[in-house]
């Protein structure tokens, strides 16, 4: 053992597999991609028909802002998303909790939810137009239904995962059924519900655009459709950028809520 010539430090093998926060990397990736596109289009390596110049897209965006059209399109879209997903998510959480708590509700509704989940909701838009009218009603309904199913699935999964020993503890101290649900089951399911919301809201944005493409005067979807049919790539990309920004903002908002509500989870 005491072979001094062969002394060397033990090799470190414990690295990796531990995600840490690297905020700026996301921005760098965006910036590099946009810079590459800009250089490519400026030099002519990428033709104007393949991809618009990022600087032109930015200019279109500024024009959009100055003419006030940005808000004409963004405000109705945001309202639809907010109203529709608020309906879908609140009903979804309610139904999900019921499925988690009652065996009969579970037996009855889980197959139904499984049947609704894979339907491309956009295929139902004509039906919703008949039921709820060509105006906002059908769009709310579509987004609500689209956000409802993933929320239900995430919620009952989360309720199933609440630590049973905590529920037994509640019972052993004589807590009422309502208290156990409100103070133990719901907070315990909150992490799962919130991560389900990320998926639900992304689906909500997709459906919002689809609904607006099929019949709306204003809205980001209508704007993209109009630009697309004129092959106006700058405007098309300006619309797509709006959607991406919306997605990032929603995801960040959920992140903020998670950090506030789930502070106990370190």
């Amino acid at each position: 053992m005491s072979d001094l010539k062969n002394t060397r430090p033990v090799k470190f093998r414990g690295g990796g597999f531990a995600p840490t926060s690297r905020r700026w990397v996301g921005f760098v990736v965006f910036a590099v991609l946009i810079a590459l596109a800009e250089i490519g289009t400026q030099t002519g390596f990428i033709t104007a028909l393949t991809l618009p110049k990022p600087s032109d897209v930015l200019q279109t965006f500024i024009d959009l802002y100055n003419s006030g059209l940005l808000f004409t399109h963004a405000v109705p879209s945001l309202t639809r998303l907010a109203v529709g997903s608020a309906m879908g998510i609140s009903v979804g959480i309610m139904v999900g909790v019921m499925i988690g708590l009652f065996s009969y509700v579970r037996a009855g509704l889980v197959p139904l939810v499984a049947a609704i989940f894979p339907i491309p909701k956009i295929a139902l838009l004509p039906l919703f137009v008949i039921w709820f009218g060509i105006d906002e009603g059908s769009k709310y309904a579509l987004i609500a239904l689209g956000t409802f199913t993933p929320t239900v699935v995430a919620t009952y999964g989360a309720v199933d995962n609440v630590d049973r020993t905590l529920i037994r503890m509640g019972q052993s101290f004589g807590l009422s059924w309502m208290s156990i649900v409100r103070k133990i089951v719901l907070p315990g399911a909150m992490p799962g519900i919130l991560s389900g919301l990320r998926i639900s809201l992304a689906i909500g944005i997709i459906l919002l655009v689809a609904a607006e493409m099929l019949g709306a005067e204003h809205g980001i979807g209508a704007y993209i459709l109009e630009a697309g049919s004129l092959y106006d790539l700058e405007r098309l990309f300006a619309g797509v950028v709006m959607l991406s920004v919306l997605g990032v903002v929603v995801s960040m908002a959920i992140g903020v809520v998670e950090r506030r509500v789930l502070r106990w989870r370190s």
């Binding site: 020993t165 037994r168 503890m169 052993s172 101290f173 907070p187 789930l262 106990w264």
Partner: peptide, 15 residues
């Protein structure tokens, strides 16, 4: 609560 438990895994609400 006449009959009160103390559990092995503490059963404290983490939140």
């Amino acid at each position: 609560n006449p009959l009160t438990y103390i559990f092995q895994d503490f059963a404290l609400l983490p939140w």
